[in-house]
Computed example of a mutant assay.
Amino acid sequence: MGKTRALILLCAAVGLCHCRLVTVPTGPLLRVEGQPLSIRCDVSEYEGPREQDFEWMVTRGMETIKVISTFDEHFSERSFQDRIRSGDISVSRLKDNAVELRIQEARISDSATYQCSTPSTDSVISGNYKAAVQLKVVPNSLIVAPDAPNPVIREGGSIRLLCNVSRNFLEGIYLSLTWSVKKGSSLLEDLLTFGPDMGVMAGDNYMRRYTDGGMRLEMGNGVSHSLVLSGATPDDQGMYVCTARLWTREQGAWNRIQEKTMEMGEVTVTPTANSLSVQVQDDSTLSTGETLLLTCSVSAEASMDLEVTWLMNGTRVLAHLSRDGVLTNTSDVVDVRRLGKWDFQLKVHSLELSDAGLYACKVSAWVQRDGGQWYRATEKISDPAHVHVIKHSKYAA
Rank of each mutant, 00 (worst) to 15 (best):
L135F: 10
V91R: 07
I173S: 12
V152I: 14
A131E: 14
A106T: 04
E100V: 08
T178S: 11
R93E: 01
A112L: 05
E100R: 15
L177I: 12
A132T: 15
Q104I: 05
N168H: 09
D147Y: 02
V124S: 02
Q115R: 15
N140M: 13
A148I: 09
L161W: 06
P119M: 06
I103R: 11
K95S: 15
N128H: 06
S126C: 10
N97R: 05
D110I: 08
N164H: 12
L161H: 10
N97L: 03
E171P: 02
P119H: 07
L162K: 09
A145Y: 00
A98T: 15
T178C: 02
Y174F: 14
N164S: 15
L135N: 07
I108F: 07
S111V: 10
A98L: 12
T178H: 01
P146H: 00
I153P: 01
V152N: 04
D147C: 00
E105G: 02
P119R: 08
S158N: 15
R93N: 04
S120A: 12
T113K: 14
P119F: 05
L175A: 15
A145D: 03
R102G: 04
L135Y: 09
I108V: 13
Q134E: 14
S166T: 15
D96Q: 10
A112G: 12
S120T: 15
V124L: 07
L94R: 15
G172N: 11
N164G: 13
V138I: 13
Y114R: 13
S117F: 05
N97W: 12
N150D: 12
I159E: 11
A145S: 03
T118A: 08
L142E: 05
V99H: 05
G156S: 06
I103L: 14
T178N: 02
I125H: 07
D122S: 08
S92G: 09
G172C: 08
R160F: 02
K136R: 14
S90I: 03
R167C: 02
N164V: 15
P151I: 04
D122Q: 08
S92D: 08
N97P: 03
Y174L: 02
A98E: 14
N97C: 05
R160P: 09
S111Q: 08
P151L: 06
C163F: 03
T113W: 10
V91L: 11
L94E: 13
V138S: 03
I173D: 06
D122H: 07
T113P: 03
G172E: 05
K130Q: 09
